[in-house]
Design a protein around this nucleic acid. Structure first.
Lengths: 208, 208
DNA sequence: AATCAAGTACACCGCGCAGTTTACATATTT
DNA sequence: AAATATGTAAACTGCGCGGTGTACTTGATT
């Protein structure tokens, strides 16, 4: 998934060990339940070393959160294409989002992050903004499709929310909240096809 | 919201005090962050008394969870009506769900419950089942509409999920995850109208 | 008035944790 | 080889929590 960065100095190597171990321990125990001692042991590193790299437990957690967001944002760029049929484009976009959202590692990290942030609005505010900003891609695509007169002039925020709600409810929340396995390729295919049809059925220019 | 039950004995009164105080402290501190001492103080009750009513912190938490579920389930019964237009019926059903989901107290409790359960699958399994069972109402209504030949013969589970995804994304998640205020009446009206139109546009019998 | 369940105050136990200190060891750089 | 930066081990400081035991008081029931 991530962590394909290359450590060169010993210090960087240690830091990577710490981050990887911390991800695991946070996933297993949650933010509050994770002890710095446990992370140190898992990383095969002295506890003092952790505090040399990070001011405290929270900043280590924030660091991990930032890595995750960065990666998700990087993987979700979308470009409107005047040549392609609308339904195919929308399907592909949703398909990309679906794949990202059903990654096991992402699910596990989102679980612990969400769990902590729900109780800790102060800690989450800034991060949440960065996330919604990362979802900007869909809005841009919708605007382009409207400008190209292939979509009715809907409120793009409203429309994006609708799509996100459906994709999440089928492809993300069952894993996140209920620990269900990722849907099969067939289920994904069928689900996204229906979502696209439902959405374009009302919002494609010239429909009904 | 709830708690309109009447204590008669002193013991029942104390128990109610404990439960109400616990709800508040759990909301403020989360499950793990809430100390039994804090609950005792808030309830104006000896800590020992709490342990006379509940075996441990977890069972107190479960008790609160159960009360919440019970109430939500009670408030969400739905009956299919052959006389009423489909869109009106669906709107009314979603409207009821919307109102329940945007109640401030429910939001606050769901936040702390979800937060803990995401980290604690063992603790959540049974509860989660009870919740999904509580959502059975929509499935029944959909089945009836299909039997009445007013809806295409869709997979009711699939259709219910779609509706739930949209309603939650507009009317529940912004409050739950981002601490946003409840949407206005106007927003609710507009949102639900669109959801109904999008849904029936594809699934009403005889459409397109 | 007597009885008995229920509540209370409070000390106590054991535990685990975030974060620090110190004295020492190991790499890396020059 | 010397100097410097980084890592290590282990003990230590506070602190707060879940849960228990006990001796005592309060309130309801008969």
């Amino acid at each position: 998934m991530n962590s394909t960065t290359k450590p060169v100095t010993r210090s960087q190597q240690k830091q990577q060990d710490i981050v990887r171990a911390a991800e695991q321990v946070f996933i297993e125990c949650g933010y509050r339940g994770a002890s710095v001692d446990a992370i140190a042991e898992r990383a095969q590193v002295s506890k003092r070393t952790i505090y040399n790299h990070f001011n405290n437990k929270e900043s280590l957690f924030q660091h991990i959160t930032n890595l995750l967001i960065e990666e998700v944002v990087r993987s979700s760029s979308v470009v409107y294409d005047r040549e392609q049929p609308l339904d195919k484009q929308l399907f592909d976009i949703l398909s990309g989002a679906w794949d990202a959202l059903t990654s096991q590692k992402l699910i596990e990290l989102v679980r612990v992050i969400t769990s902590e942030y729900m109780l800790n609005p102060a800690m989450s505010r800034e991060t949440m903004e960065r996330i919604t900003k990362g979802e900007e891609g869909m809005n841009i695509w919708l605007k382009a499709a409207i400008a190209d007169k292939r979509l009715k002039p809907v409120d793009v925020e409203f429309a994006a929310t609708m799509l996100r709600g459906m994709v999440h409810e089928y492809g993300h929340h069952p894993m996140l909240f209920f620990g269900m396995p990722a849907p099969s390729k067939k289920e994904k295919q069928h689900t996204l096809t229906e979502i696209v049809a439902v959405f374009l059925g009302r919002y494609q220019a010239g429909s009904e």
